[in-house]
Design a protein around this nucleic acid. Structure first.
Length: 437
DNA sequence: GCATGATGCTT
DNA sequence: CTGGAGCATCATGCC
C-alpha cells in the first residue's frame, strides 16, 4: 500500500485494491487535491447577469405585494425579517397556538408555521415572503455583487473544514444554490458557459447507500445494486411487503426517507418529524427495515460498539475521527456521538471516493491534453464541468470511467450524466456515443 | 463593530 | 431531548 500509485501525483493509475480493509490509499489526498481546488476557484462559474437582474425585479415586486397584503391584514407594519416580531404577531396579537420554545421565544420556523398555516390567511403569505426574501438576499443580490471582472463568480474551496472530509465552498458558497421548485430552476439558469461550450454535470447515484452496502455486506442491498434497481422502490417493497407494481408514490417516499435516515443514525422521533407521522409508526418503519436488512442492523450495531471500544471510527481509506461524545453522561450528547459513529464512515468514505476520482480525472485531462475543458465545481457527490463542444464526448467518457472505477467496492459505482447550456435546464444523457476514440 | 440566535439553502 | 455535514443572511443585544 505504501507503493500505491496515489503517492505519485503525475502518474496515477487505478488505486491499489490489495488491502481489503483499506482498499485504496488516502495518503495525502488532501495535499494532492489542493492545487485542483485552487484552479477550480480561479476558473470560476460564468454568470448571466441579465438573468439575475430580471429575477431581482420580479422578486422585488413580489416582496412588495406580499408585505402590503400582510400589513393590510393585520393593520400595522412590522419587520417581516424579524422572527421576534413574527412571534409576537402570531402568538400574542393573533393568539395562535405556539409550538416549540427556543432560547429567545417561540419558534416561527417553516415546520412550525406549516402546522398552523390553515388557522390564519397571513401564515402562507409569511412563508412565501420568507422564501422569496431568502432568494433575493442570498442568491440574487449577494451573488450579483460577487461577479468579478471576467463575468464569473470565484468561490473558495476548502479542505480541513468539514469534520467528515468533505470539501467546503464559501465566499460565496456555490454548494447550496437552490435546485428545488420553480425558483431553483430560475436561479440556476443564470449559471452559464461561454459560446462553443457546454455544461456537464455528473453525479454519483446513491453513493452513500452503496458505501453502506459495501460496509454491511447486506445481501439484499448487494442484489439490488448489482441489478441496478431503483433502491428506494426496492426498500419500499421490503418495508411494505408488496411487489413493485403495488408500491405507491407515498410508500416510495417513505422508504426514501428511511434510507436516508439509516445513514444519519435515525431515531423514531427524527423520522416522525421528517415524515410528519407519529412516533409509533416511525418506530415500526425502522424496526421493519432492520428486520428486513439484518446485515445492516448488525453493521450499525458493530459501528457503535467499535467506536465506543476504540474511541474513533474510520473511513474506507482508514481516516479516523475520534468521538469522545460516546462516553458522555449526557444522553443527548451520547446519542449525537452514536449518530456520528454511524454517519462518519459512510459520508467520509464517499468524500474520499469523489476526491480520488477528481484527482484521476484531473490527471487524465492533462494526459489527454483536454485543456479547454475545466472542472468548475464539486458538490459532494457531483462534479460540474465547463466543456468545449468538441471535447464533450471525450470528457464524458473519461469522467464516467474514472468516477465509476476509482475504487472497487463489492457493488458497482454508478453515475448519472447531464448536459445543458445553463445549470437550470440540464438534460440527462442516457445513451452514450460509443463511437468515441 | 462583534457575537449569537434563528432561519433556510444544499448534499 | 433526537437526522449527518456545511455557509449566509438578518435581527438583536452588548461593547
Amino acid at each position: 500500500m505504501n507503493n500505491s500509485p496515489l503517492s505519485n501525483k503525475n502518474n496515477r493509475e487505478s488505486v491499489s485494491i490489495s488491502d481489503e480493509l483499506h482498499p485504496y490509499n488516502v495518503d495525502n489526498i488532501d495535499g494532492q487535491i489542493q492545487n485542483l481546488l485552487t484552479t477550480m476557484s480561479k476558473v470560476g462559474f460564468l454568470i448571466d447577469v441579465e438573468v439575475i437582474n430580471n429575477l431581482e425585479v420580479e422578486v422585488e415586486d413580489l416582496l412588495k405585494k406580499l408585505s402590503v397584503r400582510i400589513f393590510h391584514h393585520i393593520g400595522y407594519d412590522i419587520n417581516l425579517n424579524s422572527s421576534k416580531q413574527i412571534a409576537k404577531l402570531l402568538y400574542e396579537d393573533l393568539e395562535l397556538p405556539s409550538g416549540k420554545k427556543k432560547k429567545t421565544g417561540f419558534s416561527t420556523d417553516e415546520v412550525t408555521l406549516k402546522k398552523i398555516k390553515k388557522l390564519h390567511p397571513i401564515i402562507p403569505l409569511i412563508l412565501e415572503y420568507r422564501t422569496v426574501y431568502k432568494l433575493k438576499s442570498t442568491y440574487l443580490e449577494s451573488l450579483r455583487c460577487r461577479i468579478e471582472e471576467d463575468g464569473r463568480i470565484h468561490s473558495t474551496f476548502l479542505l480541513d473544514v468539514a469534520s467528515t472530509g468533505r470539501i467546503v465552498s464559501r465566499d460565496p458558497n456555490l454548494q447550496n444554490i437552490p435546485i428545488r421548485g420553480s425558483w431553483g430552476e430560475k436561479i440556476r439558469k443564470a449559471f452559464i458557459v461561454p459560446c462553443e461550450k457546454i455544461l456537464i454535470a455528473i453525479d454519483y447515484s446513491q453513493i452513500d447507500l452503496r458505501v453502506l452496502t459495501h460496509f454491511s455486506k447486506e445481501s439484499k442491498l448487494i442484489e439490488a445494486f448489482k441489478q441496478n434497481q431503483d433502491i428506494h422502490l426496492s426498500t419500499a417493497m421490503e418495508i411494505f411487503n408488496k411487489k413493485a407494481s403495488d408500491i405507491t408514490a407515498d410508500e416510495r417516499r417513505i422508504a426514501k426517507t428511511v434510507n436516508f435516515g439509516i445513514i444519519y443514525g435515525i431515531s423514531p422521533h427524527g423520522l416522525s418529524e421528517s415524515l410528519e407521522i407519529n412516533q409509533k409508526q416511525a418506530a415500526y418503519f425502522i424496526k421493519t427495515y432492520l428486520d428486513k436488512y439484518p446485515q445492516v442492523k448488525q453493521y450499525l450495531d458493530l459501528s457503535r460498539q467499535n467506536a465506543l471500544k476504540n474511541g474513533y471510527t474510520e473511513t474506507l481509506g482508514g481516516e479516523k475521527r475520534y468521538i469522545p461524545e460516546l462516553k458522555s453522561k449526557n444522553h443527548f450528547i451520547r446519542s449525537s456521538g452514536e449518530r456520528m459513529a454511524i454517519n462518519y464512515p459512510i459520508q467520509g468514505s464517499s468524500a474520499e471516493i469523489i476526491k480520488l476520482a477528481m484527482l484521476d480525472i484531473d490527471c487524465e485531462f492533462v494526459r489527454r491534453k483536454l485543456s479547454s475543458s475545466k472542472m468548475i465545481l464539486q458538490i459532494h457527490d457531483e462534479l460540474v464541468f465547463e466543456v468545449e463542444n468538441e471535447e464533450k464526448d471525450a470528457v464524458i467518457k473519461i469522467v464516467k470511467e474514472k468516477m465509476e472505477n476509482v475504487v472497487k467496492l463489492i457493488i458497482p459505482l454508478k453515475v448519472s450524466i447531464k448536459e445543458g447550456v445553463n445549470w437550470g435546464e440540464m438534460t440527462e444523457i442516457l445513451k452514450l456515443e460509443m463511437a468515441i476514440k
